[in-house]
């Protein structure tokens, strides 16, 4: 029996370039505020919001809304499942890279 090619361990959700960068950035932090992440990734509010919601629906990203004073803030973080999937995705990339 042949060993499956590492590309089968890639996580399809991370093949989208914005989602890839979003998860890479969140993996370095416990949580990040929406505007900070938007500026870092250089995307619009709507693009980040759409991709973050997609990852939230998959259980990869957690989204928490709150206030700092009177200003509404949104915080994003990777879930434990998200960190596992990201680690698995990077392992697959390393295996392919050789």
């Amino acid at each position: 029996m042949t060993t499956p090619h590492p590309r089968h361990q890639l996580v399809e959700a991370f093949t989208h370039p914005v989602r890839f960068s979003l998860v890479a950035a969140l993996n370095a932090t416990d949580n990040t505020e929406f505007a900070t992440l938007r500026d870092q990734l250089q995307v619009s509010d709507s693009v980040l919001s759409r991709q973050a919601s997609h990852l939230e629906a998959l259980g990869i990203v957690g989204i928490k809304k709150g206030y700092v004073g009177k200003r509404p803030r949104t915080w994003l973080s990777l879930t434990a499942n998200g960190r596992r999937q990201w680690a698995s995705h990077l392992d697959a990339l390393r295996a392919i890279a050789g």
Binding site: A25, L90, L93, A97, G98
Partner: peptide, 23 residues
């Protein structure tokens, strides 16, 4: 997008490292 070659995989790993470092 799931069919990557070694060069593309290395580029993605470098991009992930850079993004994490910036964050």
């Amino acid at each position: 997008p799931l069919d990557l070659d070694a060069v593309r995989a290395r580029e993605l790993l470098a991009q992930a490292d850079q993004t994490e470092a910036t964050a």
